[in-house]
């Protein structure tokens, strides 16, 4: 399984695997927001946690179809399905590779982009923490969406339509943690709830994703 993870990571980094694409997209979204909202730093500071979360979420969405599409096209998904590793484990590794190549860079880049958005001082730690906790859930949920649409020729847009509603709880709690942190409020239940959603998704979504892959491979 570690071998699989290493292979996916190598594939993602090498040969135009779109390693930096999500990051660049994140940067562009954050750059465009002030053009839409206006350069008022007070307003930007207020909406910064939400915008950064949304930007990270959309950047994550962008690379979801890569989780399975390449393996589907060259037939290695069939091999993986018959391999001794359970398909659920394959899904976990695929999602982990996606998180390491997309989610983790986003988490690390978020504070830098927070400067652009005039994020208030106490917000940086909470923003990074909430993204670090939330993005794994985004990757696993995304793996489920990718599993549903893997057999389709033009699955990209459909994938977004299916996955975005599933992102709602994670986004709400994640952005809430970041917002409360930025405004210096008590974080309260949002943080454990975010962590809970992430853990539950990591624990359960691979089963749904594996079921969807089995249906698609049939």
């Amino acid at each position: 399984m570690i071998g699989l993870l290493r292979r996916d990571l190598a594939l993602a980094i090498r040969a135009g695997g779109g390693f930096g694409l999500g990051l660049a997209f994140f940067l562009i979204v954050v750059t465009l927001v002030p053009f839409g909202v206006g350069p008022d730093t007070a307003i930007l500071g207020r909406i910064a946690p939400g915008i950064l979360w949304l930007g990270a979420l959309l950047a994550c969405l962008l690379s979801l179809d890569r989780i399975l599409a390449l393996d589907w096209e060259d037939g290695s998904l069939d091999l993986l399905a018959t391999a001794p590793i359970p398909l659920e484990g394959v899904v976990v590794m695929k999602a982990a590779a996606h998180w390491l190549t997309t989610g983790l860079p986003l988490v690390l880049a978020a504070p830098a982009l927070g400067v652009l958005m005039n994020l208030p001082g106490p917000g940086y730690g909470w923003l990074t923490l909430s993204l670090a906790l939330g993005t794994p859930a985004l990757s696993v949920i995304g793996a489920f969406g990718a599993a549903l649409t893997v057999g389709l020729k033009r699955g990209g847009l459909l994938l977004s339509l299916l996955v975005l509603p599933l992102y709602v709880p994670t986004l709400i709690f994640g952005a809430e943690v970041a917002r409360r942190g930025a405004e210096g409020l008590v974080i309260g239940a949002a943080l454990p709830l975010l962590a809970g959603i992430s853990l539950a998704c990591i624990a359960l979504m691979p089963f749904a994703a594996a079921a969807a892959i089995r249906v698609n491979l049939r």
Binding site: P165, V168, P169, I172, F173, A189, L193
Partner: peptide, 8 residues
């Protein structure tokens, strides 16, 4: 989950 998240 969204229902409760939204309430929160």
């Amino acid at each position: 989950m969204s229902r409760y998240a939204v309430l929160f």
